[in-house]
Design a protein around this nucleic acid. Structure first.
Length: 471
DNA sequence: TTTTGAGTTGTTCGA
DNA sequence: GTCGAACAACTCAAA
């Protein structure tokens, strides 16, 4: 008697280790590993440019680790999986759950259809430490404030799964499917120089993710609590894109941390994993999080419509150095340091008075770690309309932020080479520099570097007035 | 039901 | 330069 044939449907779990669905599939029989690119999903948001680029290389890495046997398809996953089951007499389908609202809907339907037709359909938790429905207040309703969510809710829930090894043995079932594609044929990358830049900044895949984690634990985590605020220092993990695509699981990180002596740094980093969980919980219980203000008071906020402002922000040409440095880091590397995300977000919403959704959309397209839950929860937070949000009057002053968190100017000078000769004193406010200092530094405001597109003090007061009017 | 304490990441002003 | 208070009021969590 031969082993049954089953499908493992790869999604945002592009790894072999600690992959609960893959492990279960391997226990069940010979496995067909399949990835389906669905770019015309109903109600869905397409990949942004940067995540699409990442996906290309991540799929290549995954395919390699499967000895080239990853079946790559394009189209509607339900139809493709059903066809595959029919053609191979498959007995089961296994996948790890996704949490985008349209995927939840799609997967629920697929699962019930498969089960009705007698197919063993199983979904698993491969992306979160706790399922959103496992963390609730004693009365059963979801948390809306981070600290009790994490300190009480998560700690009261069952301990996160210990990481699973790569399944052994892993019997792959060879299959010739109509419509099978190579990674290249998905056309996820193009010839723009932008693609090549992203390529230079990152290494994708499960092995690279593990290396990143251990490099961070070796060099970055010590002094993380403080150091994470300074963009010129290497004290952030930069694991977010790996986490987004499931090249590493939060459980692998969680338990790697727990192997070490418990320090403030370890604890703080664990907290950040908690924020990721909190974002997923918010999205799960508020499927409109990416579009609709959590706090309805903001529904009549008088956002400004101004394409010139938006373009200047996107291109890193606002004339506010720390803001422009952050926006250029994003454009050049597909990533932005967390401190900068707050600074540029605050600036967009509270100085330019542009709708947070415009910022969210740009981040979605440019970030290699663009993640529906984290991105929308964080934009709502900085805009003041989100869960547990900073009070609206807490407006970042980008000059002070630069002086405080990039005090030697290394980060700013790296991304704004046109200002690199300016002394620290004026690096964050070149418009206040005397003419001779500008001249010595080779800076001509309005020519080599823009004048500020808004006046900081004035625009701040305007934002506060606008907020007061919403009631 | 009522009450109480607290809530990721800031800035400005005046002493 | 440093410090504390004001900024505003509201919603949440839990007793």
């Amino acid at each position: 008697m031969t082993a049954p044939v089953v499908i493992h449907w790869f999604r945002q779990d592009l790894r072999l280790s600690d992959n609960p669905a893959l492990t279960a599939a391997c226990d069940a029989g010979e496995v067909i590993p399949v990835y389906v690119l669905n770019d015309s999903e109903k109600g869905a948001r397409d990949h942004g440019g940067a995540t699409q680029n990442w996906l290309h290389y991540s799929l290549k890495a995954l395919n390699e680790s499967l000895n080239g046997q990853l079946l790559i398809m394009r189209g509607d996953p339900s139809a493709i999986i059903k066809n595959l089951l029919r053609d191979t007499k498959g007995a089961g389908v296994f996948w790890n759950r996704c949490y985008e609202p349209w995927r939840i809907e799609h997967d629920a339907q697929l699962k019930s259809e498969l089960q009705e037709s007698g197919v063993n359909a199983n979904s698993f938790n491969g992306s979160l430490l706790w399922e959103p429905w496992q963390v609730a207040k004693p009365d059963g309703t979801p948390y809306k404030v981070f600290t009790p969510f994490y300190q009480k809710g998560c700690r009261r829930a069952p301990e996160p799964r210990k990481p699973l090894p790569v399944p052994e043995p892993m019997q792959l079932h060879p299959v010739k499917a109509n419509g099978a594609l190579s990674v290249e044929e998905l056309s996820l990358i193009d010839n723009r120089p932008w693609s090549a830049k992203l390529r230079d900044s990152w290494e994708q895949g499960e092995l690279a993710a593990q290396n990143r984690l251990y490099a961070f634990l070796e060099k970055g985590i010590s002094n993380y609590k403080e150091g994470r605020n300074f963009p010129a220092l290497m004290h952030t993990s930069r694991l977010s894109p790996h986490l987004h695509f499931g090249e590493i699981s939060p459980n692998q990180i969680w338990w790697a941390l727990s192997m070490r002596e418990d320090t403030h740094d370890i604890d703080h980093f664990r907290n950040e994993l908690g924020w990721r969980e909190f974002s997923y919980s918010l999205l799960f219980y508020n499927p409109t999080l990416p579009q609709i203000n959590l706090n309805a008071r903001f529904d009549n906020f008088p956002w400004v419509s101004d394409d010139q402002r938006l373009l200047a922000w996107q291109k890193g040409q606002t004339g506010i150095p720390i803001v422009d440095a952050g926006m250029r880091e994003l454009w050049q590397t597909g990533y932005m340091h967390n401190r900068l995300r707050m600074i540029v977000g605050s600036f967009l919403v509270k100085n330019l008075l542009l709708d947070w959704r415009l910022g969210e959309a740009w981040f979605w397209d440019c970030l290699v770690d663009a993640d529906l839950a984290s991105n929308s929860a964080s934009w709502q937070w900085i805009a003041g309309c989100g869960a547990d949000a900073a009070p609206y009057f807490r407006i970042f002053n980008p000059v002070l932020q630069g002086e405080k968190f990039d005090c030697y100017g290394d980060y700013t000078r790296h991304f704004l080479p046109e200002l690199k000769e300016l002394p620290d004193k004026f690096l964050y406010k070149p418009w206040e520099a005397p003419q001779n200092i500008l001249q010595n530094a080779g800076v001509a405001l309005g020519e080599t570097y823009p004048l500020p597109i808004v006046e900081l003090r004035k625009s701040r007061e305007e934002a506060l007035r606008a907020f007061k009017k919403t009631k």
